[in-house]
């Protein structure tokens, strides 16, 4: 009975993903936060999205950072986001991959550097959000072959692959020079490519889902509704 129920659910899930998703595969996501301090942001304060250094082995994609920046700034509850390149350039050389602080205990010393505190204050930066993580293909299979001739061409077969998008955001509060907490998004999804003459891709957009989920949670985390 349970098996029947499971297979029915799986079938319905696949059907729903295939029909309602309009070419989208299925994704499962988990977004969590761990708060270490009270947050909140004034209208004249801003946030900066940074990737943890590739000197430390981090592989966060540039397009994911851009996606989070855009998603946080969008909407009626959008935050003021300083583009990370502008921030890094204005504080050169203190936020370069080699020199950026790796933990909050380095912040007091950094603020004592000539011009650093003034530059951060001038831009109204209240929070630095450090992103780490990436999107990887974790499994795949099936086979698909295509052929073309004078009379036409076509594909036949079935291929699938599974992507995992795991990202973690550490929120640093520059007012108290301390960590405010972390927000993480773990999204996995399987994409399918069935082909009977014409391939029909059903793509699981895990990175886009991780971007949307993390940005929404980050906004709620920073705005901290209980204070407003």
């Amino acid at each position: 009975m349970n098996e029947l129920w499971s297979s029915t659910v799986a079938y319905r899930l696949t059907l729903v993903c295939a029909l309602l998703g309009v070419g989208a595969g299925c994704v499962t996501s988990r977004v969590e936060d761990a708060r270490e301090g009270i947050t909140g942001i004034a209208s004249d304060e801003s946030v900066v999205i940074m990737a943890k250094s590739y000197h430390l082995g981090n592989e966060t994609e540039a397009k994911y950072i851009a996606c989070i920046e855009n998603a946080l700034a969008r909407g009626s509850k959008g935050l003021r986001v300083i583009p990370h390149k502008q921030f890094v350039d204005s504080l050169f050389p203190w936020f370069e991959p080699r020199t950026a602080p790796t933990e909050t205990k380095g912040l007091p010393k950094l603020m004592e550097r000539p011009g650093v505190a003034a530059q951060i204050h001038e831009q109204g930066v209240r929070y630095i959000i450090w992103l780490e993580g990436d999107t990887e293909k974790v499994a795949g299979g099936g086979s698909l072959s295509c052929a073309a001739g004078p009379g036409g061409g076509g594909c036949f077969g079935f291929a699938w692959w599974q992507n995992a998008s795991d990202y973690n955001a550490s929120v640093w509060d520059l007012e108290g020079l301390e960590s405010a907490g972390t927000v993480s998004a773990d999204v996995s999804g399987t994409s399918f490519l069935p082909a009977l003459v014409v391939p029909i891709p059903l793509i699981a957009r895990t990175q886009a889902a991780a971007c949307k989920g993390l940005a929404n949670q980050l906004r709620a985390f920073i705005i901290s509704d209980e204070l407003t």
Binding site: S90, W94, Q119
Partner: peptide, 8 residues
């Protein structure tokens, strides 16, 4: 081009 560094 490199940005003007914050240094003495």
């Amino acid at each position: 081009t490199i940005p003007k560094p914050l240094m003495t």
